[in-house]
Structure formats: C-alpha cells, structure tokens
Design a protein around this nucleic acid. Sequence first.
DNA 1: ATGAAAGCGCTAACAA
DNA 2: TTGTTAGCGCTTTCAT
Lengths: 325, 325
Amino acid sequence: MTGGSVRVTIDDVARAAGVSRQTVSRAMNDKGDISEATRRRVLATIEELDYRPSAFARGMRTQRAGTVALVLPDIANPFFPAVARGVFDAAAARGLAVVVHNTDADAGAEAEAGRAIVDAGAAGAIGFFEALDDAALAALGRRVPLVVADRPAPDPSVATVRTDFRTGTRLACEHLASRGHDRLGMLDGAVQNKPERRRAFLEVVGGDADRVVTGPPTVAGGVAALRRLLARHPDVTGVFAFNDLLAIGAVQALRTTGRRAGEQVAVVGYDDITMAALLDPPLTTVHTDKYELGRTLVEVLGRRLDGHPAEHRTLAPRLVVRGSA
Amino acid sequence: MTGGSVRVTIDDVARAAGVSRQTVSRAMNDKGDISEATRRRVLATIEELDYRPSAFARGMRTQRAGTVALVLPDIANPFFPAVARGVFDAAAARGLAVVVHNTDADAGAEAEAGRAIVDAGAAGAIGFFEALDDAALAALGRRVPLVVADRPAPDPSVATVRTDFRTGTRLACEHLASRGHDRLGMLDGAVQNKPERRRAFLEVVGGDADRVVTGPPTVAGGVAALRRLLARHPDVTGVFAFNDLLAIGAVQALRTTGRRAGEQVAVVGYDDITMAALLDPPLTTVHTDKYELGRTLVEVLGRRLDGHPAEHRTLAPRLVVRGSA
DNA sequence: ATGAAAGCGCTAACAA
DNA sequence: TTGTTAGCGCTTTCAT
C-alpha cells in the first residue's frame, strides 16, 4: 500500500463514481435534483473510499463550521458541568461539535469569546453571559445565531432559555414560611445581571434590604455571608441562598456555632447540584433541571439554525425538600 | 456606512498597506524575510482595519485548525470539570480553542470522537480514553498530535501524562494500617484499563482478591458495593475506594447500618473532588491535582506541537486526611 | 526583502 | 437531472 496519508477528495469520489463533483456534493448534502440511483451509487462510493469532506473547504464556501460555541463562566462550578452535559448530548445528536469558552464572568473574556466564535465561523453560539452588556451581546447576535441562557434577549434576533428564578424563590420562601420561619435572611451571590432571586425575596420579606447580605457565590462566600447575616440579625431562623454553594457555606458556618441546619435554623439553597443530596443534613433546595436546560439550549439553537425565528423558553423550577429546611 | 458585513481580507490589508498579500502573511505569522519597518506598518494596518484572518482559508492551506480536542468520559463526573478547567486555561493562554467530546467511556463514541478530531483538522488532541484499544489509539496518534491521560502510551508518538495510582493507593493503605486497620476491603470501579489501584491494593493485602468488590464508580455503586463487601467480610474495618464517589456511597451505606465513617469503619477515597471536603464526616482521600493535570496535558501537547518528541510525565498524588479515616 | 503564481477542496450559480 | 465555471482567503513555492 502506498498513499495512506493522501487525502481522498471529492474529485476522487466523482471519478470513482463516474459523475461530476457537483453531483457528489448534491448526494452528500441531500440537495434535490439528483436521481435516487445516482445518489445511492455516489453514497456507496463515498463509503467505499472512506471519503470525509474537508471541514475547511466546506467552511470556506459556506462561511459556517459544523461547530457550536458554549460560553460559560466556570466549568468547575458544579452547576455548569450538568448543563454542559445536556449541551454535548444534544449537539452530538445533531452532528455538531462543541467549543467551550470559559470566561470567569469577566467582561473582557466574554467579549474575547465572542470574537473567537465569529472568527471561527461557528454555526451558532450558546452563552451564559454574565458581564457583557446588552449592546455587545446584540452585536454578537447579529453575527452568529445566538441563544442566551438566564438572561433577557438583548435583541429580537437573540433566542433565550431561562429558568424561572422568581417562582423558584417564592417556592423557597413559602416553604420556609410554612415551616414557621418568619424571620428570614438571604445570602445573595455577588453576580451581575441576576437580580430576580433577590427581588423576589425582598417582595416576600416586605422590602427589608437589610436582610440580604451579598458575597461571592462560593462555599467560602457562604460561610462569611452567614456570619455577617447573623451579626446583623441574630434572630434569623430561615436562610435562603442564591445558590447551593452559598447554602453549603451557611450550613458549615452554622455548625461552627453549634447549630444544625434543619433544626435551629432552616437553610434553602438553589440549583440542586449533585452535592446537595449527599450532604449531612442533605440540602433543601430549588431544583432546576440542568441537563434539560442544556438540551433545550441546543434545541432552540437548532431551530434557529433551521431558519425559525428566535424563541424564548422558560423552564420551571421545583422545590426539593430534604433535611436542611 | 455601507459594508458592515463584508469581510476584510488579506488583500484589503495588502492594498491599504501598499504591499503584496504574502507580505501581510509574513507579517502576521512572524516569518522571516521582512523588514522591521514593513512589518510594523502592516501590523498597524491590520489593527486599523480590524482584519481577522479566516480560519477556514488558513486551515485549508495548512490542514490544521487552531483548535485542540478534549476527549473525556463524562463532564458531569466531578473529576473532569476540574481537569477541563486546567485545560481551558492553558489552552486559552496558547490561543487555542477547545472542542470537548463526551464519550461515556464507550468504545464506539471514543472512536467517533477520534474521527471527528481528524476530520476537523484539530491541531492536537488530549484524551481520557477508557475503552478504545491501543491499536486504534496508536492510529489516532499517527494522524494528530496526541496526549493521553492516565494510560500507557500505545505508540512512541503518543505523549502521556499520568497520575501515579500505585503510589496513591499505597499512601491510602498505609494510612489505614497506621490507624490500626488490618482487615481491609476495596471498592473497585468497574472501569476498563485502570487496574493499578486494584493491583496495588492486592499487593498490600497479600493478594486476597476476595476483598475487592467491583461496581460502577458512582455514589449508588458505592452503596451497593459496600453492602456486598460487608456481606462477604463483616469484619472489615478499613475501606479503600477507587474514587470519591464510591467512597461517598460507602459512607452513606455505613450510616444506614448505624456506623459512622471515621469511627467504627475507616473509609478512604480517591481524587479529592470538591465535595470530599464538604461532607460530614469530610472524606479522607488521595488528592490528585486535577487542575494541574489539565494544565500539564496542554503543556505536553504544546511542546509536541512545537516539534518536540512525545514526553511522559507523572503527577504525584498525596493523601489528605480528614474525618472519614 | 518583496511579489507573482498556483492551488488547497468545496459549493453556488449557471448552463446544458 | 447532470456538468461546467468560478472563486471562497489563505500560504507555499518560486522568481525577482
């Protein structure tokens, strides 16, 4: 054998099948205007020669790669791997490869990701943009089919998939109330563009902004935030956290004061990350179906790629009651 | 303004800078044979026109994209996001985009990922291949610069980065011994190509394979595996698990029998996923620096891309003693 | 140090 | 229904 490394091109297939290269192109791209017999013969030849079209050449003509971008703040934050898994599965089912851009919710990094996406000629993009302003996001949406997660559409061309934070928050607060907790506090995540949870909480507690303390949405942030909350309001018996990481930190901080979540003080988290069910006490939290969110993001993007107008979907959260509240 | 959407090409830059297009190409690719003055002028023009070279056109010539592939079994398994984060950061520093392929450790999916990687003309690939045989892996390594993680090199051209499972296992077992546990059991993960932990454990316990039970490397798998182990060897007081997920399952299963890990029975996990430190009791486990593993994989791939021969690195694990053992 | 020519592999537009 | 023509934007010879 000789040419193990020479590329099989569309011309080789055309020659072998005894047709023109355009006909080969038609056969593989399911274009019309081709007889069933020719199509079959060409496809068989493709198989036989193990021909794989060049993504570069194709992209050069179409200006579009078979790739979608996934922009997220931090893959190491347990919320995102679950979403990413849904994105990967749904994208693979559509034959799309996924390029991941990790931004740390930094505006510069998000902008840079946008540039890279456009430069790469991605077929579309899915993004958790937490820092980029609407104007920049709208501009990106004009250059590439875009679906944004958990954020309002910055432009009519941009599709959205959102989880209903307001309902989730009410679910959490109503649960705390039903357990007799009327002195509530909230640990808010210091995250831009995510005011819904805080707002809904404030509605419930009657607007007392003093009952909300803010910190980084991490376990360490939760430890510190709970201490600040308790210093300010020692009488608090119910705590609602922006996410599970903060809630876990709160549970830990309580433990150091000799209190156990679910007994003296109730703690409700948000997201229902895998860890939540495994803790002791297991965390009561607002569950959002992260895998489904990922799948939906791809589905909405796919419909956009198929020429449909931008859609807007909302996923419903539900409360999972465990030991901590 | 008119042409917001027409692409700025290398010819536009050449015209504006008053040079030929190869000169532009030379300037941006840092090739020699160009005067400093021209180079600067061209670069300034590029900046001014906001010219971005077409990845497709470039790839068509070079047959290589500015993209690396990351193949992993399951991004939702907490071990991998931490590694992925290291990969993303190091790749971004080198100006490489990362395409992620999720395989579920399925041989067919791993093979398909390999095909996709070759078709996409990836600059290189990093992979946790758990099912693909050495021949197929070697073949892939001949088509694209490849670094495999936690697996022996299938071919001299394939670079490797491994964590030293043998040492990690000995660390865990010696710790158990030092705490007086001489009746040990192991929960092995039903994972292909990962015999080191089991082997090292068997050396320690003197080859009694009966003391190893095998199950899926998940929390549920750990619950079931521990029950089987206890049914077989009720006298076991020290448990070493293939990974933290299994160990967490073991701790839970113990709890249902009224035993607490770290008191009646000692449990040691492997990996030190984020969750491990947050549990109650917190998990004693073998720590591997997952972020560093990700970074190293990219570094080794980078050196390969720079023309160096395939390297083989090993990362040292260390034991983290917490409450469970 | 610079430029001209050639062509990577594909698909859109048009012709037959 | 099929084939021909043209050209996407870049880099690699090779010539100057």
